[in-house]
Design a protein around this nucleic acid. Sequence first.
DNA 1: GTCATTGCAAAGGATTTGCAGTTCC
DNA 2: GGAACTGCAAATCCTTTGCAATGAC
Lengths: 171, 171
Amino acid sequence: MNLPLQEIEARFRRHAVRLTRQRAAIYAALAATTSHPSADDLYRIVKRRQPMISRNTVYYTLGVLRTAGLVREVNVGHDMARYDGNVSLHHHLICLGCGQIMDVMDDELNRLQLSNGQAKGFDVLRHRVEFYGYCVSCQQARRDVSPHRRLAPSFIEGGEHGKQFKGHQES
Amino acid sequence: MNLPLQEIEARFRRHAVRLTRQRAAIYAALAATTSHPSADDLYRIVKRRQPMISRNTVYYTLGVLRTAGLVREVNVGHDMARYDGNVSLHHHLICLGCGQIMDVMDDELNRLQLSNGQAKGFDVLRHRVEFYGYCVSCQQARRDVSPHRRLAPSFIEGGEHGKQFKGHQES
DNA sequence: GTCATTGCAAAGGATTTGCAGTTCC
DNA sequence: GGAACTGCAAATCCTTTGCAATGAC
């Protein structure tokens, strides 16, 4: 999964992004995972190899990469932004318990369209589909904790007051 | 569009939400609009009639209403949360220029499903579909400003560094 | 050499928390 | 009467900004 530096270099050049050690590391870290890390996750990952790097650089770089089209932002709730090195057209499946985000590749979803009547004159450029539910281990955890409550909380529409998975707590 | 207090009272009772003047006002304001206001928008709206109300009460109340299932949170980017008094199943169409959010009612979208293979063992509870594009007046504004650049920026995936429509600026 | 990028520190904005006083059921 | 709610202020968290030093092309 580790992207060779050459490839990173090539992509940066292709997208007119200036190459620095920090940028390469940030992009490599993102490309090496499918876990959709937050800016701060990336900061911590890169910091292991480059202790001098600042958070600011990570944020700034993510902005640059996003603008260049090398990186996508994924949003879960209005929580902190999470990033995706996979810029091909795809959708997401999100765990309401632990916040993990899985990729969903599906041509049918990619082809969804709004009828003219629904589009209200908008020039629609793209869409995204997100599925929400509980992953296998969070299903288990919920059974263990509350065998009878089936609240189906949500950080999207409904749910408990607080934010979800600031860590891994569940409602 | 103005919900009679009686109806608010009935809904609160049905959802076991304690009734106060502030809550009724917040919920009424949300029910009276399709503009998906932010917590702060609601604070300002309610403040006109109840100058003593605090922001905290608005946030707290929105949490209570959301938990009770009387209100939904809508998220655009990872910007501030926006709220929707329409809790029936529906989707959204969002303007990348000005941030307005339109409701999309569409049974076909409501019925979307993930195949078992794609669901990865998740217990999928719901999904949402969001369409992104430019509304009529933002299309016009873009033509006026930059007749040749067709950047198609995005606060979702790609786009300029800054946030969008903190006001109405465009990239 | 020049302009973009980096790192630091400080600011900013949205949301939450602590707590004392008040209100609803 | 007691738990839940309200308002105020302060705190927290994520992100951005200002600025001087550094580094890429």
